[in-house]
């Protein structure tokens, strides 16, 4: 049975696109058929993070408007054959995305894939609402910081009112993904703690992704962190989050490097 998952946050720059790519790749690496869909019309970036930017021909709007077939717009990942991307348009106006057109494309995607993962634009306006409308599940990406938590709360409100599930009297299955988490700053109490954020938002925790240079390096080379640096801390957090999404019950741990400083240096060196 296929699942539509929206990765959303309200606030910009918290790690939605990074998380879409990493979770999508992690689920695909476990053998499931996954498509990641860029809903950030006008500011597409998922193609760059996935390393598919040279291969974009058609986009979501072309498919919605009937100018291209879905199969023509999908780009299959070169490293992982169960992973595909549907890019956003870079130039068109987001009003070109009609609700009916999006509904048709989502139905078609559901038939082809086990997971349809939608990368939401920032904000709470139409673009974000279109991205979440068809969702069965939501990953709310939050940084341990006041404005991000506040915006996540607003997004949770929208998920409970402005989605197809909500209209049918059902609930979107919501999960909190805490990203850019800095254990050292948390220890010094300079950052909201995991418990604080969970208490305020009261939705289940999907994972804690640490702040890490591996994320930046991966986006430099155009690969989800789970493909580029599969043993890194952020990749491990994303792999575990993907297993939880697939229904496994796993305890969430705070990601800390268990090695000493010199091991760390030699790991870089290798």
């Amino acid at each position: 049975m296929s699942k539509v998952l929206v990765v959303t946050s309200g606030k910009g720059g918290v790690g939605k696109t990074t998380s879409t790519a990493a979770l999508g790749a992690a689920l695909a690496q476990s053998g499931q058929n996954v498509v990641v869909v860029d809903f950030d019309v006008g500011l597409r970036n998922l193609d760059l993070v996935m390393g598919a930017e040279r291969r974009v021909v058609f986009d979501l709007i072309n498919v919605v408007q009937g100018d291209a077939r879905l199969s023509q717009a999908l780009i299959r990942d070169k490293r992982c054959e169960t992973l595909s991307i549907l890019p956003a348009s870079q130039t068109r106006d987001k009003d070109a995305l009609t609700s009916e057109g999006v509904a048709r494309v989502m139905d078609e995607l559901r038939e082809k894939f086990d997971w349809v993962i939608c990368d939401s634009p920032a904000g709470i306006e139409r673009g974000a609402q279109l991205a979440m409308y068809h969702a069965d599940m939501a990953v709310i990406v939050t940084n341990p910081e006041v404005s991000s938590v506040r915006d996540s709360d607003r997004i949770i409100g929208l998920l409970d009112s402005k989605t197809k599930k909500a209209e049918q009297g059902e609930k979107v299955d919501k999960h909190l993904l805490l990203t850019r988490y800095d254990p050292a700053r948390a220890a010094r109490k300079e950052m909201l703690s995991v418990e604080d954020v969970l208490e305020i938002l009261s939705i289940p925790l999907l994972g804690i992704v640490p702040e890490s240079e591996d994320v930046l390096k991966s986006s430099n080379v155009g690969a989800p962190v789970t493909l580029a640096a599969p043993t890194s801390l952020p990749a491990r957090a994303y792999f575990e989050a993907a297993r939880r999404l697939s229904g496994e019950k796993l305890e969430v741990s705070v990601p800390v490097e268990k090695r000493g400083f010199f091991d760390w240096l030699f790991k870089r060196d290798a």
Partner: peptide
């Protein structure tokens, strides 16, 4: 059949 037509680009 349009569905049997694949278009690919690789920008170098």
């Amino acid at each position: 059949d349009q569905d049997k037509v694949q278009i690919k680009v690789d920008r170098g």
